[in-house]
Amino acid sequence: MTSFADLDLADVEEVAERREELLAAVRDHAGRIAYHIARVDGGDYGQRSFSTDDGEWTVKYEAGDLEYLRFEPRGGGETYVISTQQPAEPKALAEALEDYPAFVAAYNDYVDSLAGMLDSVEASFPQVESTESVVTERDRIVEAIEACCDRMAGELRRYEGTEYGSFAARIDGTRWELKWDEDGASYLRAGGSGGVYVLSQYGPPSAADVREYAPRFGGFVDAYNDHVAELELDLETITFET
């Protein structure tokens, strides 16, 4: 690796130009190292350190690109050989670059250590069972509940005379609520505001929820029928004379 030892330090402009030339070469070379580290680590962001006899090098990458290359000599201190900040001071940079070949060798040793790591890992796995039959049965039950709720919603809307409303009942300690709008049943929820949406506009419930609440839906229908029966009794007591 070329150093600054052969430069006339009195010529600041020449030193600066030479430094930029070296940094461009290192940035390109270390950038390839960062790219390969990012690939093997499997992440867009991260860092990895490599030890040499003279210190420790840290490669940090972001989105697969080199963010910085830092050298920390064993005597203390640190030099950002590549960074987003201003370039390193020439003397510190020259000392760091003297150790750069050792850093590359440490990186190569790391890559060699990965060889064969996955050779014993099997790429064959057990067959994945389909949930098709469970989903089909779930959908059949939910569709039956939806048809019943749409009918109840239609009757309630006709009686209430409004396009929006709800009917709630407590069944064995659980609050059930049917809400309707102009299109029919909007949702059927069991368990209050934090409960389970047995029926909703955002997708079906889980098969486990259907298993738990579908058998109890009949109690809610009974409560609706009792409600309708009470309405009929109330209407029968009304007298109207002209």
Rank of each mutant, 00 (worst) to 15 (best):
E182M: 09
E62N: 12
R157G: 06
E182S: 15
A34H: 00
E98R: 02
N108C: 05
W176D: 07
A106G: 06
F4T: 01
L69N: 02
E146G: 07
V221F: 00
T79C: 15
T84S: 14
I238F: 08
T84A: 11
R70A: 01
I37E: 13
V40E: 13
R18Q: 14
P101F: 01
G55T: 07
T131W: 13
G161Y: 05
G55C: 05
F71Y: 15
E137P: 04
R158S: 12
T237G: 07
Y197K: 10
E232K: 11
R27Y: 01
N108V: 10
D234Q: 12
Y35K: 15
V196I: 13
P90T: 07
E230I: 08
G76K: 12
S166D: 03
A102R: 00
F217M: 12
D8W: 10
Y68V: 01
D41Q: 14
S166R: 12
V111A: 14
I145Q: 14
V221E: 11
R18P: 03
E212A: 11
G165M: 11
A207K: 08
A144P: 03
E89F: 08
A30P: 04
R19G: 03
A229N: 15
H227T: 03
A24V: 01
I37P: 11
S130R: 10
F71C: 03
L97M: 15
